[in-house]
Amino acid sequence: MSVGVQTGRVGLVGAILLGGLITLFGLIFVVGGANLAALGGSFYYVICGLVLLASGILLLLRRALGAALYLLAWIGTLAWTVYEVGFDWWGWLPRLFGPTILAVLVALCLPALRRYETFRSTTAGPVSGPDRRAV
């Protein structure tokens, strides 16, 4: 039981750290991607950046949807990679290597986030619980 609580806590802290990182990447993607799109380049970065922003913010809020959105972005990136470079592995390296590492970490946090959401819904809100007792 205590082990489960421990991993759950690690998962939640991880989700927050990942959320910060993904928010940062999302911002870079949106700003750089908008720049690129304005220069006539690919729209991938600005679209993916918006998804990453949403994902990162939700992860900071410890919402499982944030993790799901990141995994969605990863699947989209995979499809985009195949569309752009086919199965040229050198082309896969920048597009998927880093994002895949993040995807694995995000997936590892998912059980903790879901447990946390279940806990939240059964106790009628995370913040109000202790408050209500105090009133």
Binding site: G32, G41, Y45
Partner: peptide, 11 residues
Amino acid sequence: MSPIDQLFCRI
């Protein structure tokens, strides 16, 4: 190495 430097090079 990452999508970020790839984006930089695309720009």
